[in-house]
């Protein structure tokens, strides 16, 4: 397999959501064929530049997945399967990217705010961000404002993602932003918020930089911010 074919296969298998050879895909009958993990290893062995694998193999594939999800063609588990593939691929590729001196797109602290135990959406966002080249520090769920501010400070993070799934806990996001202001950190970090009860208006109200509808929207917004 040459480089183009290999990258195409990686792309295809991410869209199919097949992490290892025994996995089923979105389509039937793919079991047994090499999947993302095996193909990434092949690509690395063949000496293909890790950066090219990420750009041509991973990023494009997740864009396709995002489009399919938006259209309703893909369901949450389909998207999760693909995101899991990207996560597995990045586990292999991240050290190589670091060795090659490829800089990450920035440090991204992620947390579900205090009092809120929801983390499925946040976890998807974490995987997508890793796949998009960010250095992700996921603090988990029910994270106190103090810990969030501390993590932003200690890691000198450029991005902070806050998640809340309850109308009672979404207010906590505003508290976090206030605390960042009081600590003099607000200017160094972009705050992105998300979660079912949140909205663009709410983001504006509490002084967040952006509201993300879903993980794909988050990636889109970040790309716009970088441009």
């Amino acid at each position: 397999m040459n480089q183009t074919e290999l990258i195409e296969k990686i792309n295809f298998n991410i869209i199919q959501g097949r992490m290892t050879a025994e996995d089923e895909g979105f389509d039937e009958g793919l079991e047994g064929q090499p999947a993302v993990t095996e193909l990434i290893e092949q690509a690395v062995e063949a000496g293909i530049d890790a950066k090219i694998i990420v750009l041509d193999g991973l990023t494009g594939a997740m864009e396709t997945v995002g489009a399919k999800f938006d259209k309703g063609e893909y369901l949450i588990p389909d998207m999760l399967a693909s995101a899991e593939c990207v996560g597995a691929a990045m586990d292999i590729l991240a050290p190589l990217l670091a060795d090659a001196g490829v800089e990450s797109k920035g440090k991204f602290v992620l947390a579900t705010v205090a009092g809120d135990l929801h983390d499925i959406g946040k976890n998807i966002v974490a995987i997508m961000l890793k796949g998009a080249g960010f250095e992700v520090l996921d603090l988990g769920n029910d994270v106190t404002t103090g810990r969030i501010v501390e993590a932003v400070k200690a890691n000198n993070a450029q991005f902070l993602g806050l998640s809340a799934l309850l109308t009672t806990t979404m207010r906590e996001m505003g508290v976090v932003i206030k605390a960042l202001e009081e600590s003099g950190l607000r200017d160094q970090v972009r705050v992105l918020i998300g979660g079912a009860p949140t909205s663009e208006a709410f983001a504006a109200e509490i002084g967040a930089d952006a509201h993300c509808r879903d993980a794909f929207h988050a990636i889109d917004l970040l790309r716009q911010m970088a441009a």
Partner: peptide, 12 residues
């Protein structure tokens, strides 16, 4: 049914 492949394929 990992990633609900079989379920989704039948009912999506």
């Amino acid at each position: 049914d990992r990633h609900f492949r079989k379920y989704s394929r039948a009912f999506r």
